[in-house]
Design a protein around this nucleic acid. Structure first.
Lengths: 269, 269
DNA sequence: CTTGTTGTTCCACATAGTGGAACTAAGTTC
DNA sequence: GAACTTAGTTCCACTATGTGGAACAACAAG
């Protein structure tokens, strides 16, 4: 007799799990309007159950039902997560730095962190002449193909990185994408010694990014910042300047987050 | 024998309602770290039930439990609502306009809409020299004391406005706050004929705002935009210019949302 | 009219979720 | 270090709660 003894207690409240799978189904549909039938099949629930749960979410105003009985996420969700963002002192601290970074380099700047096995964008700042970027706060991306992902993973224990990429996979987006774990680990070593990471058309054709990690008071990586632009906007010649700027901004933010400052300080401020 | 026959079917899934009341409790605590006991009392649930629901939400990653058994909202919520914001074509359309508006006037610009009985901030743009504003996307505020609220309510049926302020109340924030329904309705009449709304230190001391409504293709108000600044930054002398700019930007956005354009158009674009 | 599709309601049933109580674990007080 | 507090976690018997199949309604298409 074999027992499945998972270490984590798996006695979750079923209907709550189901409710969120409905929310996620709507979320993932991303524009495609879903009816109750669609929701039921997407979540593998009976139509009646899906209906009851959806109705509950509607009265709670977390989803809305339009005149054609199609469901979409409700505005109330925004309020919930706005609090999350607002409570993240990191986002607060990084905001102005990020903005200045974008202005200084004339490119789009991002703040990102690891959540689960994903890269999660926490903040974004455009420069005046920045091109239309498709990224948005809350977006999730891959850790193996982005400069932010590299900067974040470089300072994690190897085992954790391996677990993440094994679970998430390493899809190839461009000819330059690193798709082998060994190569990725080698790259991370380089990033760690250099203190910055580069994405050279690895996530998207024609786009180059430079990122540097942010540490908290314990010395742990908690996030990373980057600048992104078309290759023509960050040619080889401009790279050193960009790297230096990003790294120095990252250090500024780290200090504000309590990271021990090695350079000598004078009095006050 | 009296029956409570509510028109809306009130057979919601209990545990889902409870789950969200826990989420909201954490959200409202706003920084104050809550333990399971606090959650139980805040939601009037038994400790065991609160614990089970919280555990479920933790495994779903919608909340997190720190080393001291205190709960906070999880990053996964950000992803959910990012989709909401992204799906709102309004936010998308208004973004650049809002940014330019902030730059042009040199003040903070907001985009807001009505959700329930609240004013909900959907987007925000700072100018370079804007002061530190406390507003944030997802924040909720009052409809009676803000310029955005007035701009929004002015074009609603009177009965609806009355219902809203009755349900929500009209708390007084400054000596200037309108606290009587009749006065508010008179003010809304003025706003409607003028086409713009002003908040003259009604919501916050020393702060003045100018707002104008945004309409969709059916002519319904769907949102409003505003600029906010300290009185010294929007003196009487500068008001006409500010009003004109805000109104023209609002009209631009309305047109982009399909609002019938009265002015003649030439060919192409 | 028939047929198909989707949203909604009903209802008998069983199980999933509940709360009280017991059990830890950690901290305070004396 | 024994005697209390307080908070988090687990257990368990009970039944109210949520469930899915099936029926019904509303509509569209052929």
């Amino acid at each position: 007799m074999r027992e499945d003894k998972m270490p984590n207690n798996n006695d979750n409240v079923r209907s709550i799990v189901r409710a969120f799978s409905i929310l996620e189904a709507i979320s993932k549909a991303n524009g495609e309007k879903l009816g109750i039938q669609d929701l039921a099949t997407a979540t593998k629930l009976s139509k009646a159950t899906a209906y009851r749960i959806a109705s509950t979410l509607v009265t709670l105003q977390y989803i809305e039902k339009d005149e054609n009985n199609k469901y979409r996420l409700g505005l109330k969700l925004i309020s919930l997560s706005a609090v999350v963002l607002n409570n993240l002192q990191l986002v607060d601290v990084a905001k102005s730095e990020l903005h200045e970074l974008a202005q200084e380099i004339g490119l789009t700047a991002h703040l990102g962190t690891i959540d689960g096995n994903d890269l999660l964008y926490l903040s974004k700042a455009n420069s005046n002449n920045s091109i239309r970027t498709t990224s948005y706060v809350g977006q999730r991306s891959y850790l193996h193909s982005t400069s932010l992902g590299k900067a974040l993973c470089a300072f994690l224990p190897k085992e954790q990185v391996i677990r993440i990429v094994k679970e998430k996979g390493m899809p190839q987006f461009t000819p330059n994408t690193i798709t082998k774990i060994e190569n990725y680990l080698l790259e991370l070593d380089k990033v760690k010694t250099q203190g910055y990471a580069i994405d050279d058309e690895e996530n998207e054709k024609f786009v180059r990014c430079v990122a540097a990690p942010i540490f908290d008071h314990t010395g742990k990586v908690i996030a990373a910042i980057s600048v992104s632009g078309l290759i023509v906007h960050i040619p080889e010649a401009k790279l050193p300047k960009a790297i230096e700027t990003v790294m120095s901004r990252a250090l500024d933010i780290s200090k504000k987050m309590g990271y021990p400052d090695n350079s000598k300080r004078t009095i006050s401020e």
